[in-house]
């Protein structure tokens, strides 16, 4: 029971990588199907379709980043791993924005990517604009990433 703090902190790191990563996997998979459909009939669109497919993949990377920072802070990657229960719960809470927003934004971003792939199928010259629509969803994943990073670094200075 004395390592419960460490358990919760590790749970936060795991959730961040797992949930955001799952969202990205779903999103990249969904956009990949549309990209494959486009490239079947128009192979010249491969690079454009690939970029749109990869956009929902960033949430998984952000989740991994948060997990990595958390593991570093709680001493799993070296150093002291003496974490109080309260601090462990704080780390868990700090990881949740990235986990939840990462999943939801990746899922919705992929829907935008699929629609944008449909757009470039008809108007390849509109690729720049087509990319902006799914990229807008990225804003919220970045905001969640910032909140999680600031919280994790802030917890280190909290004396509980």
């Amino acid at each position: 029971m004395e390592n419960l703090g460490l358990f919760f902190a590790l749970l936060g790191a795991a959730l961040s990588a797992l949930v955001a990563g799952a969202g990205s996997a779903v999103g990249v998979g969904r956009a990949g199907q549309a990209a494959a459909g486009l490239v079947t009939d128009d192979p010249s669109q491969f690079s454009r379709a690939l970029i749109l497919q990869l956009l929902p993949g960033t949430q998984g990377i952000y989740g991994l980043l948060i997990a990595f920072i958390t593991l570093t802070q709680i001493g799993i990657m070296g150093g002291s791993s003496d974490i109080s229960l309260a601090k462990g719960l704080l780390y868990l809470a700090a990881c949740l924005p990235m986990a939840i927003v990462g999943y939801v934004s990746a899922s919705y971003q992929s829907k935008c990517s699929v629609a944008s792939i449909g757009l470039i199928a008809k108007r390849p010259d509109q690729f720049g604009r087509a990319m902006i629509f799914p990229a807008m969803v990225e804003t919220y994943a970045i905001l969640a990433l910032l909140v999680s990073i600031l919280s994790i670094f802030g917890i280190a200075n909290v004396n509980i």
Partner: peptide, 14 residues
Amino acid sequence: NYIYAVARVRCKEL
């Protein structure tokens, strides 16, 4: 799942 199919239809609509 019709995502792949719809993307192909979009090309054919041209």
